[in-house]
Design a protein around this nucleic acid. Structure first.
Lengths: 411, 411
DNA sequence: TCACTTATTAAATTCATTTTAATAAGTTGG
DNA sequence: CCAACTTATTAAAATGAATTTAATAAGTGA
């Protein structure tokens, strides 16, 4: 976008304002002198920008620093008490809403089950309900809420306004959440694919350095992927990028929901584990899960399977190891193609079976093409089951910090 | 890079100068009024920038346009006669150098075989030789040469200065071509991986629209890949991105040089075709190539194989079709992950067997996950065997147009 | 020929950063 | 404790970019 547009002093101001705000956000409390050193902007410019940000209460004075031989510096920091985000995490099993501040601290939280059809409530009514509940319970003024960020199962349209047709969310199709939420709550709203949002959360609240490209693997019921390039979500043509779950790693493998064969999602997702174990049991394979399954077909959840794995069930252990191996092969392909600096794993499967990160890392590093692949960092997401909410929050945060002039400062 | 740095009016000037120059390059001959309309810059600014560019002879007056009711507009265009690039294409079999103008027209050209060891000439001496020959034969003044662009087999180091350790170029390892060429010829020199360079050539000289991300598939002896994101080469961590040849699509497939199994390069490259046909013949498979092969093991080049395919040899046709299928599966994976707007095919295999583009397209579009994959354009490179030289030329062109202030205008 | 339109050029204005200078408030050493 | 030195902050003037405004040149059409 920007590269096609002309620039004038306004973009300079925008850019430098954003630069200073991010600097204070990340490194505060900090003195004007240090901001100047780190940004190479002069004292005078820092003075102008901080004065402006101070006036709208985006910053606050955090005290005084130690003198280095002269006058004590005034320290500034981001005005945490003034900015909150409504984070909406739309999952397959439930919709959660949280009130999150810009440090990534979740203040209030409320969930509703997706399958709870007591009152025949529609999807959008459930969304309203969690948000209304959230707002009614909180003591934080609505004027301090910067916007509504939504993490949802893909595909999402290019504008970040509609949930199109997620295969796992029955009854939800072409829902324009953005317009409806903006209208109802009068707050800026943006949607993002769950894996992209989770990746963005790592960028803002995690241990990612500036301009390190990251690959986020969302291993849950299915497998999704999110990519961050130059600190921004990489979306690709019509938002189609990141579908690492549908990289086929075995043309003779099992059929995937997408119609293809041997997709990563068909061999390394949470659902694929359940499917494979059921199949083995039906085949007569020995397992401590056998009775459970034969009594109730739906009893085999990922949680119970993992419990039996921890108790040493051979079938479970075998399937889990295979799953790790497949995931490793998939990640190898992604690395050879995308070459990220970090690979971050999240989702239910990873939470229940964190060893899968190490297994994938070993396989990927032994198979990767480039010699520098050994320097790629593999980590489990630091946010666990909160990564959806954190992701949703980070969407709004990104918007605000990228153009504080258009969002924070409403002239 | 830029996002971490502060901006001032200098970057504004840089950016707008680059914008105007690219506008004139792509849309010239064009009037100041039209430039203003297209860029949203005011007449005065356009006046300043064009005056400056005119003064250093980056532009020239191309005549007068039709009046639209007022004074006839002066038309400006890029000063083609003033800018040339030495393009160096380092291939597995030969080194070629060409003098290319900014329209992508190749003026002079000279090659030397890589395997010609008559005089025990080292690699770097061969490079010097082709460039010297080129310079001695041309009538174009050396002052009009903007730089030396080099397209070379990867891996290339992060600075674009060294060829590291290409598996197919024996005897070439850690050669710092950039420093040596810059010193000898006193011209800015930049190296780029062959597939990246070829992709960039499509961006500059081909039919790619601004900000359309492209995936270039370089199917030759091996298989390489290049990606363009936001009009720039996407390199990834330590230049490791784009290795589509080492996406594994079959864990039980043949072993690849990289140590892995079932890599695209092991099942869909030019060499893999030769290997498979040899294997089939040894197994006793029927083919019109049988006698040829049994008399001389090295007689089975890709060219002869293709000839026999055109004459209807069943074995060849079968292997080619399989190859297309594999390539299609590999491209599907790449599309699901990267979601480009265009996929462009080049390299010897594609030149000899252009049908492979259509085959890959059919497979990829039937297997791709996203519904919008049907809108992805699949094309064969328009530059044939010249794509290496064109790629090399486009590297320097990109440099100049991105910061004309630092390169064209030497104050 | 005259009114009108369009392209170009030149001067004055605006806006953001930078440069320069002045001031405030510390530290250090004798 | 005070003088010399540092450092942080603030204010005013200068610089350099795009923009606004006005003037001029060169066409068109009635």
């Amino acid at each position: 976008m920007k590269s096609l547009e002309h620039w004038n002093t306004e973009q300079v101001k925008q850019h430098n304002r954003s630069l200073v705000l991010k600097m204070i956000y990340k490194n505060g409390p900090i003195s004007k002198a240090d901001i100047s050193k780190n940004t190479n902007l002069t004292f005078a410019t820092i003075g102008n920008i901080t004065a402006e940000l101070l006036k709208i209460k985006a910053l606050k004075v955090a005290g005084y620093g130690e003198s280095n031989g002269g006058r004590k510096p005034v320290l500034y920091e981001f005005n945490w008490e003034n900015y909150y985000v409504i984070a909406l995490d739309i999952g397959v099993t439930k919709v959660s809403a949280g009130l999150v501040n810009f440090k990534g601290v979740i203040y209030e939280r409320y969930s509703i089950s997706m399958t709870d059809f007591n009152y025949q409530t529609t999807f959008i009514e459930k969304v309203y309900k969690v948000i209304d509940q959230l707002l009614s319970e909180t003591k934080i003024e609505i004027s301090k809420i910067a916007g509504i960020g939504v993490s949802a199962p893909g595909p999402i349209d290019e504008d970040g306004s509609q949930i199109l047709s997620p295969p796992n969310l029955q009854g939800v199709e072409n829902v324009n959440l953005k317009d409806q939420l903006q209208q109802r709550y009068n707050l800026i709203t943006i949607l993002e694919k769950d894996a992209n949002a989770a990746a963005l959360a790592e960028q803002w609240f995690g241990e990612v350095n500036k301009n390190e490209n990251i690959l986020y693997i969302f291993a849950d019921q299915g497998i999704g992927g999110g990519m961050i390039v130059d600190s921004r979500t990489y979306r690709g043509f019509k938002n189609g990028a990141g579908e690492i779950g549908h990289i086929s790693i075995d043309p003779d493998g099992p059929r995937c929901n997408c119609g293809n064969f041997g997709c990563l999602e068909a061999v390394a997702s949470g659902l694929s584990i359940i499917t494979r174990i059921k199949k083995e049991i039906r085949r007569g394979g020995r397992s401590s899960l056998t009775d459970l399954y034969l009594n109730d077909e739906d009893a085999l959840t990922l949680e119970t399977i993992m419990e039996h794995g921890e108790n040493g069930d051979d079938l479970v252990l075998k399937v889990l190891e295979e799953t790790g191996r497949y995931l490793g092969i998939g990640v190898t392909n992604a690395i050879n193609f995308f070459a990220p600096k970090m690979v971050i794993f999240g989702g239910q499967l990873v939470e229940l079976y964190p060893e899968i990160v190490q297994i994938s890392e070993n396989i990927a590093k032994s198979r990767a093409f480039s010699t520098s692949a050994k320097d790629i960092k593999f980590v489990k997401s630091s946010f666990g089951e909160c990564s959806g909410l954190m992701g949703a929050a980070s969407i709004i945060q990104q918007l605000l910090f990228d153009s504080p002039g258009n969002t924070l400062i409403k002239l």
